[in-house]
């Protein structure tokens, strides 16, 4: 199971990383979306722990409710921990009509997980996302900002996953 996000404790190391991110954004609270994206990149499970959100709210002239709103509004920001290699599968029409169901099935079968669960080693999660603008490579997945596709056979999927071993 995915670890419990409320147990996350903020380390001094992470604090100083967050400080640095805030510096890069000139402590400008209007850049909160960019700040949160950067903080998320610093966390191996690609999410924003509650403690980090509280920390940012304390460091910026910004209310926690605004930060929480952003985290829950934007798809690219995550409230819950994910795999170290979250596999985002495009669920747009272009991918659907190119049999992304088969791709999804292959992923589930090869990894032995479903949506909302993580592989035993904490490496992979599978998530459905809206079109990420790679319809010319349908059906496609995106892992840590890189698009892979078209993935039409189970063999292609297996090869892809092996890259992350």
């Amino acid at each position: 199971m995915i670890e419990d996000s409320s147990k996350f404790e903020i380390t001094d190391e992470l604090k100083s990383k967050i400080e640095k991110i805030l510096d890069n954004h000139y402590h400008d609270f209007t850049q909160i979306v960019g700040i949160l994206l950067d903080v998320q990149d610093e966390i191996p499970q690609h999410y924003i722990p509650k403690a980090a959100a509280f920390y940012i709210a304390e460091k910026l002239p910004l209310k926690l409710s605004v930060i929480y709103d952003c985290i829950t509004f934007y798809d690219a920001l995550n409230e819950e921990p994910r795999g170290r290699y979250p596999i985002e599968i495009c669920d747009s029409v272009a991918c659907k009509v190119n049999d992304n169901d088969f791709l999804l099935g292959s992923l589930k079968e090869l990894l032995g997980i479903d949506f909302g669960t993580v592989t035993y080693d904490g490496r992979f999660t599978i998530e459905k996302v809206s079109c990420f603008g790679a319809c010319d490579r349908a059906p496609a997945v995106r892992i840590n900002k890189t698009v892979y596709g078209p993935l039409k056979t189970k063999e292609q999927v297996r090869k892809l996953l092996e890259q992350f071993v």
Binding site: K63, S65, V66, Y68, D69, T72, F73
Partner: peptide, 9 residues
Amino acid sequence: IEAIGFAGR
């Protein structure tokens, strides 16, 4: 105060 706000979509 902004104790309450919108969240999600």
